[in-house]
């Protein structure tokens, strides 16, 4: 019983990371029909931001596991990844909006470039971020069931992000413009919405969310230049399962994939688990080709 509860909890924690990654992908896909294959590298950027800040703090104060550094690192990872995302959108992706498959290839190039950059700056071996003291240890629910605080913190971080995204999309005027462009680009443009600005901001927002996911991942294990590639394919599967860039569908799909992955992995092996999930998604698409949540067309 406790074992299954722990599996479920681990599944939830994986789901929340996947969700943060997939939301960024789903946003830019829903808005601009492009998929950013360098998204995994934005995760890596966020993770290395935390590491770099910690190294800098250690050089200055000598305190490696400072709480202040870690709390500062959270928004900073969002800002760094978001800023790079903004640059990539402005310098590359906006030229390719009519050609989604080409965007795919061009962003692969960005990804290879960023990975090599990280390897040149931080070295190829993995590095470890030291978590602040209040994130170590576990929350003991019963005798056999101890939930790691780190994973609880990640889930909380993701919940805050979703709340923030909800506020942005449904309560702010910037978000209203974004939804307008998503629904009908030409009409929104003719009513005076700057679609260029919306595209750029949304892409940066999605990249920033990936950066936050990277920040969360530093708590789970060591980080390296190819950190993103471990998670990115699962995130794509979430986007495919969730449906055409829809936020509710993405949330549901992330929950399903994260939990299925963990449960299958526990029941069989990691590899067989992945194969099973992939097969199930392909079969599911036979039944509902547009994913879990369908956009209602006019």
């Amino acid at each position: 019983m406790e074992v299954w509860a722990l599996q479920l909890f681990n599944g939830l924690s994986l789901s929340s990371i996947l969700l943060l990654i997939a939301l960024g992908l789903a946003l830019s896909f829903g808005l601009m029909n492009v998929i950013n294959l360098a998204h995994g590298e934005f995760i890596m950027l966020g993770a290395y931001t935390v590491y770099a800040l910690q190294q800098a703090a250690m050089a200055l104060t000598g305190d490696v596991s400072s709480s202040v550094t870690f709390i500062m690192a959270i928004p900073l990872s969002f800002v760094v990844a978001g800023a790079v995302g903004m640059l990539v959108e402005a310098g590359l992706i906006r030229f390719l909006y009519q050609r989604p498959l080409d965007t795919l290839l061009a962003t692969v190039g960005v990804g290879i470039f960023l990975q090599q950059l990280a390897r040149s700056i931080f070295g190829a071996p993995n590095v470890q971020v030291v978590a602040p003291w209040w994130l170590t240890g576990g929350l003991e629910l019963t005798d056999g069931l101890v939930l790691p605080i780190k994973r609880l913190f990640i889930i909380a971080l993701v919940l805050v992000c979703i709340a923030g995204l909800y506020w942005y999309m449904y309560r702010s005027s910037e978000g209203r413009r974004t939804r307008a462009v998503m629904q009908n680009r030409e009409m929104a443009a003719s009513l005076g919405v700057s679609t260029r600005r919306v595209d750029n901001l949304t892409f940066a927002l999605g990249s920033g969310l990936a950066g936050l996911a990277g920040c969360g991942l530093t708590l789970i294990g060591p980080i390296g230049p190819s950190l993103g590639t471990f998670y990115i394919v699962d995130a794509f599967i979430v986007v495919i399962l969730g449906g055409l860039g829809q936020i509710p569908g993405t949330i549901l799909a992330a929950l399903i994939i994260g939990i299925l992955n963990t449960v299958f992995e526990f029941g069989t092996t990691a590899v067989v688990g992945k194969v099973l999930v992939f097969a199930m998604v392909i079969l599911f698409l036979q039944w509902r080709p547009n994913g879990l949540v369908r956009v209602r067309g006019r």
Binding site: L92, F95, D102, L105, A106, G109, G111, I112, Q116
Partner: peptide, 20 residues
């Protein structure tokens, strides 16, 4: 090897952006 990785990244971008 380092230059190759940067070159490959640039090739992906250049091939679709400048010489589709």
């Amino acid at each position: 090897p380092v230059i190759w990785q940067f070159f490959l990244g640039g090739l992906f971008i250049g091939a679709v952006l400048l010489f589709p």
